[in-house]
Simulated scan of single mutants.
Amino acid sequence: MPSTPPTQHDLWNGPAGDAWVQAQSLLDGMFAGFVSVLADPVDPAAHVLDVGCGTGALCLAIASRLGPDGRCGGVDISAPMIDVARERARSAGQSIDFTVADAEQHAFAPASLDRIVSRFGVMFFNDPVQAFANLRRALRSGGSLHAIAWRGPADNPFMTTAERVAAPLLTLPARAEGGPGQFAFADADKVRGILKDAGWKDIQITQLDVECSIPADQLPTYVSLLGPVGQALRAADLAPADRTRILQTVVDAFAPFVQGDNVVFNAACWSIRAV
């Protein structure tokens, strides 16, 4: 019988969460271009929540822009990532409220926030209508949402290169059709319907393209840790030589994205705003 796929809680408190912790600095650099998109401008007195905050990079950026009356918080289902986020905030001398919780279910203080932001954190809800209704109740009247989500796989060849090349070589975890996952918000009309059903107004969904990069010498780390291929490589019972061969085959497939010492790609996303 086929095994039951892991829940989002199990995934992000297990292999996926551990991988993102290990790749924290790589991911921070890769997605640095999204920080200004979500953190600027910010009212210095605003109360802001980052949904799916991960290891805290966006929270740290927002907190540094707030004044003494402002407040920043982050929520994530992954305890390992929140542990890192808390340590980073302590090291930076920032007072940030980090919570390990599922934003779909968590009892946020009603009407306590001015703004909710998210960088790739809203595509993983089991019931997105319930999740966005829950988040809406946490906002004050006139409060705003700004989330970034991936467009479709065809728009993001970098993000699917490893899977395409590794598919004949490894047993990859299947992407759940219509369920939570990286490309769950690829259909803008579907996202607009989710937000409308959850009670949001003035919904604006626009294309956002951001150039991202990582050092070329970090590409093997990226492939071996992240996404379905990283998950499969960690789980597979492979001889060291076979593992090395597969990893090199996948890394070589990223040659079209290599520019000198860097791997450069376009992140094709949706900018999702609502009030």
Rank of each mutant, 00 (worst) to 15 (best):
D209I: 03
R164P: 04
D197C: 09
Q24N: 13
P180H: 06
A184E: 01
R192D: 15
G178Y: 09
Q218S: 15
L49Q: 07
N134H: 07
S224A: 14
R151D: 12
D83I: 03
S141Y: 12
G29C: 04
A198S: 09
V129I: 14
R234D: 10
M159W: 15
A101F: 11
I77C: 05
V129K: 08
P15R: 06
W150R: 02
S271T: 01
Q24W: 13
V251Q: 11
V165I: 15
G52I: 08
I194R: 03
A57D: 14
A39N: 08
D18F: 09
S112A: 04
Q8A: 11
S36M: 04
W12S: 03
N13Q: 04
A109H: 08
R90K: 11
V21Y: 06
L135Q: 03
R151S: 15
L169Q: 00
V35E: 12
Q182H: 01
G67D: 06
V191Q: 12
A107M: 07
H9V: 12
G93S: 12
P228I: 01
K201T: 10
T221R: 12
A92K: 01
D252L: 04
A107L: 09
A19T: 06
Q105Y: 14
T160F: 03
G70E: 07
D209W: 04
G142Y: 13
L233P: 03
A239G: 06
T161V: 11
